[in-house]
Design a protein around this nucleic acid. Structure first.
Lengths: 153, 153
DNA sequence: TCCTGATTATCTGTCTACTGACGATAAGGT
DNA sequence: ACCTTATCGTCAGTAGACAGATAATCAGGA
């Protein structure tokens, strides 16, 4: 009775600290997403890449990295894996021989569609505690907070 | 003119995806926090540990890990560093010789106070785009979303 | 008491992401 | 044309966090 089941509660000074709550909520959401994507052997970052290359014009690795705020050295390994799975192809940029244009394959488009279905379900589960109006509020607030300048890497 | 300065904009299908916005906002907040704490050579996680041990009863490493949702093997290194800095001390648990009770030193309490001042300023900067009412809304929404069960590690 | 299983902290190995450096190529000034 | 500087993709090294195994200790039952 003196030792209840769960871990000790957080002190009040932490419970109302927004950066901490944000970090914790993001951890929960992100790990849920990656767990649910594990059956496709993809990470959330890779789904982001697939989404960009299927929905936008062909992009270089650097443009992908800047848009998703992924380090460009990490992009190499992520694309190596996607290429090995047959989901994307690197093509030489016609005007810049240093760069590659990343383009999706047919099976890459199919994988992207399947992954988006999984992430739709993930979002549904994660946002279950909120009403539709609250979800819209949250989305609007986070949009403003996530629009700050990227740290110029 | 055909190539504007910034990276390409995100496709609409990603712009309104809450888990993605949450991840991005958390990244921005977390990296800002760690950058601002760098002058004290502390990480945000370590400030969490200092906050718990100064504001709650003495806790074991496992209780700290569960409360902050940090892996217990990571806790070892974090505490090793805090102990080397003279901010905490490990004391044998009087009733369980396997466990240590982590207690703050005087300089640990001072460091915690200084770190909290830094994090107050970090929160102020990060939430600058929002009105006080919006900050309260966000805090309430995130509190509900971050209260899901911890993944029983 | 003794035995079995669980728990605490630790250590080792692994995986992921970032920092710094490099070769190849491009862009701009002279 | 030449030379200097910047950029793109890549690789090697490094730091952080997690998974699995281990020694010491505790808890509970026969």
């Amino acid at each position: 009775m003196s030792e209840p089941a769960g871990p000790p509660a957080l002190p009040p000074s932490m419970r109302d600290r927004v950066p901490f709550l944000l970090y914790r909520a993001s951890q929960i959401s992100h790990s849920l997403a990656n767990e649910m994507l594990a059956e496709m052997a993809l990470s959330a970052r890779q789904v982001g890449i697939l989404t960009l290359v299927t929905e936008l014009e062909p992009m270089t690795q650097k443009a992908l990295a800047d848009t998703l705020r992924i380090d460009r050295t990490s992009m190499v390994a992520l694309l190596d894996d996607l290429e090995a799975k047959g989901y994307v192809a690197r093509q030489r940029h016609p005007r810049d021989r240093r760069a590659f244009l990343v383009q999706p394959t047919d099976s890459g488009r199919a994988a992207k569609a399947a992954a988006v279905r999984i992430l739709d379900e993930q979002q549904r589960r994660f946002l279950a505690p909120l009403t539709p109006a609250e979800r819209a509020q949250l989305s609007a607030l986070l949009t403003r907070l996530s629009q700050r300048p990227a740290p110029e890497q």
